[in-house]
Design a protein around this nucleic acid. Structure first.
Lengths: 245, 245
DNA sequence: AAAATATATTGATGTAGATCAATTATAACT
DNA sequence: AGTTATAATTGATCTACATCAATATATTTT
């Protein structure tokens, strides 16, 4: 039972188009020519604001849709036979989510809003058909998946080899970079996820995340007030991240 | 400087074709019709036996080729600015490697033989062109990448949440399954990688891998003699892997 | 075959982070 | 505003694994 966007009573499709979306430079739509936009608009639907905690698709659902974050943020997480829950990624405006369902035809994870968010949705089959005729779109999809693989391989290294401080530094600098790419401040931002969620993503407990956070604060590398982060010493944060332990 | 296969003096292209390869059921070639094989043969080159330790491509190389393992086995690993080395995967006959280079155009990791191996190689650009005209090949490539993402997301959970015994159980059962798929025994096989390499992959030290191994042996779950493994109690190994810790 | 080198095992000890527990801060609800 | 529930911090203790060190076993070299 896929809970696709337009099945929500509060999430009907409203008058929005990829062609007039200011996000297109970040989104897969960015590689299309203006003339090709109308066709994209026929396969993309756009949600209105979804509240925090909304599950866009669940582990075990049959795979049908891919999503692009328009505003807000998303987490993906998998669970285990033993009930262990692992956050596998955080996603921000422009990010394309859900391609990992292709291999088995089953959604391998949960996709959930971290805060009030709007998202765009497409049937994967239709996107794939479109891409068959558009080499640039085809390549873009491959690039997105390839990038996902690289990101996860990097996270494997982080989880396997880095201590708590380095993991948190890696995390904060990655967020900083992603916010910067989206035109926001790279040094001052709000964490849309809880300490527990950061811990799940980084393979740490809440307590360890909290302690690592206050340590960064005490060392005057960041200022942290609840979810608000200010990076005050980028160089030190990078040194910590890249230190040979 | 890409060290592609046919640049090796000892690895000249020999008379081999995808069309007469007994591996095709496991390989991407498996989804093509007989009539399409000749075209695949024009873009695939086949190495002769490469010795252990041969590096097929290096982190930082410009991305050009993808590889399929024909015989033997392969490891991929990345390194860090701080010199940390992380094995990101082990690959066996039929496995397609290298698609993670698409996003940046740079090979993000090293690809190296674990033992004497033969491999098949294709220019990615040519494979991509071919796939443009063959929906099934296009879909197959997407499936391979999607599977890679799922595998890595699963490894993230293993590294973030599982203890040494569970990690080793996960590893051994995964190998068992992959060998079975390839027509080999699922209960008796040879580990082509060292304890150190297993440790790198699982985020553990050699010592911990060794201890976890002897513990499995003492509990009569496996018999291990150097690199030879016999799984004597699958149920116990599964229970260990899936245990809620 | 002997020497040298690399790999694996086993033991002793130290430590980062988990766990348990208590307190404080924040958000949600009535 | 006051009550309840949730999230975050901080402290005390415990433990699994890393680290250091010593053999032991393979593998390679001469």
């Amino acid at each position: 039972m896929n809970k696709n966007v337009d099945s929500y009573s509060y999430a009907s499709i409203i008058e929005q188009h990829c062609s007039n979306c200011n996000l297109s430079s970040l989104c897969i739509a960015g590689i299309l020519e203006n003339a090709e936009m109308p066709r994209l608009d026929t396969i993309m639907s756009h949600s209105k604001a979804l509240p925090k905690g909304e599950i866009l698709s669940s582990q075990g659902d049959s795979f049908q849709f891919v999503f692009v974050v328009k505003t807000g943020s998303i987490k993906t997480y998998t669970t285990d036979v033993s009930g262990q829950e692992q956050i596998t990624g955080f996603y921000f405006p422009g990010d394309l989510i859900g391609l990992n369902g292709i291999s088995s035809g089953i959604c391998p994870d949960f996709v959930e809003t971290l805060e009030t968010s709007t998202i765009c949705q497409s049937s994967f089959e239709q996107l794939d058909k479109f891409s068959a005729e558009h080499p640039k779109l085809r390549r873009k999809i491959l690039k997105v998946m390839s990038k996902d693989i690289c990101n996860e391989q990097h996270m494997l290294l982080v989880l396997a080899k880095k201590d708590a401080g380095q993991r948190l530094a890696t995390f904060l600098l990655s967020l900083s970079c992603r916010f910067k790419t989206r035109g926001f401040s790279e040094s001052r931002f709000r964490l849309p996820m809880s300490r527990r969620e950061i811990g799940s993503y980084l393979g740490l407990t809440v307590e360890t995340v909290s302690r690592a956070m206050t340590r960064l604060h005490k060392n005057n590398i960041i200022v942290i007030d609840q979810k608000e982060v200010v990076i005050t010493d980028f160089a030190a944060l990078v040194t910590l991240r890249d230190g040979s332990k």
